[in-house]
Design a protein around this nucleic acid. Structure first.
Lengths: 192, 192
DNA sequence: CGCCTCCAATCGAACATTCATTCTAATGTA
DNA sequence: TACATTAGAATGAATGTTCGATTGGAGGCG
């Protein structure tokens, strides 16, 4: 998941992610990160400026990773509907496959702990903006109602997030059949 | 918002809520809560067992409050559609009117800091379960597709949450027109 | 009323612990 | 030799919580 980083950084980022999901940011101390990752605090501080820097780097790394996964295969010559549904499916698959990254972004995308500049960069480099463009195309092609694409993306993203969350908490079952139903609902909700 | 509590408890809960939204749980220390609420740490510990207890009580209080607000006026003799749309509208209005409570539940409903028993009680005493029953009725009346009501509630809740979040972050405008569009989309997404 | 008693409520200094971070010494490596 | 990397003890600030002293006011009694 953190391919652009060296071994030490990878170990630290992965360990931190696991600890934060398991025990909260509050209970995730540097000494715990050090112990669990097998890297001494001295080394950690050699590669990261501070604890805040680790968390923000974690955020940046996950967003980049997710962006690539979601946008994979949506710039083909296929019909818009195929490509849009692929993006949604990518998002669902990704969230189920990397639940920790998904949960982390969920919990901290609105947290003051993440610098605004990092959030900004995440938005610009993530999948949100490209997807909005696809939605705008769909509106132009009279596939969708004349709604703000940003609005529609947030609506559909929210639907997916909550269904996936419920599935991760074992509150809902999310098998192929349900995934199809979810994607159909998204399409139907704004289709003309 | 915390009517069932005494003055001291109210001051502590309200101050804590404000601090957590503003600065994160991490940065919200007991001494800060004491200073900002004007209650000494001694008194706080006279009314609350621990910091964890405060946060969990906060959670419980907000969920109860929200439950009443959302379910207000949905047990009338009116058609199902009217009542369902009212519930959604209630939720949107509530979230915009009490953004701190909304954000708090959003951020911490999946956090390990909240005891499972409290989450459980929140679910049973909140608006989720009653709403699922309305959805089941709508399925029976052939208004909605034959989908798991739990599934649909989560889908629609997610849509609303993300649109409201975006509005609170000034990423989207959410005026009457948009609220109508959002509710229509929810309806359309699962209607037969 | 005036005085006293009593206990809940309030306070904030004190406490042990834990935290993020620094520092110096040791180690690997080229 | 020289320099980047690693280690983990040391540091001081900050944390959640406790505790003994103080206050306030309700109620009993002369």
């Amino acid at each position: 998941m953190f391919d652009n980083y060296n071994k030490v950084q990878q170990a630290v980022l992965e360990t931190t992610l696991g600890l934060i999901i398991e025990k909260e940011l509050q209970a995730t101390s540097m000494s715990l990160i050090a112990r669990k990752s097998g890297i001494s605090t001295g080394s950690i501080y050699h590669y990261f400026e501070s604890k805040e820097a680790i968390i923000n780097e974690l955020y940046r790394g996950i967003v980049t990773f997710n962006g690539h996964k979601v946008l994979d295969g949506i710039y083909t010559g296929e019909p818009l509907r195929t490509r849009l549904e692929r993006a949604w499916r990518n998002l669902i698959t990704l969230s189920l496959e990397y639940p920790q990254g998904f949960q982390f972004i969920e919990q901290y995308s609105f947290s003051p702990y993440i610098y605004d500049e990092v959030k900004q960069a995440a938005y610009e480099g993530g999948w949100c903006h490209p997807l909005e463009k696809l939605y705008a195309e769909a509106v132009e092609q009279k596939l969708f109602t004349a709604m703000d694409p940003k609005f529609m993306v947030q609506m559909h993203y929210g639907s997916i997030v909550y269904v996936v969350k419920s599935a991760l908490n074992h509150y809902l079952d999310l098998k192929d059949e349900e995934i199809e139903g979810l994607i159909d609902s998204c399409w139907q909700s704004v289709s003309l």
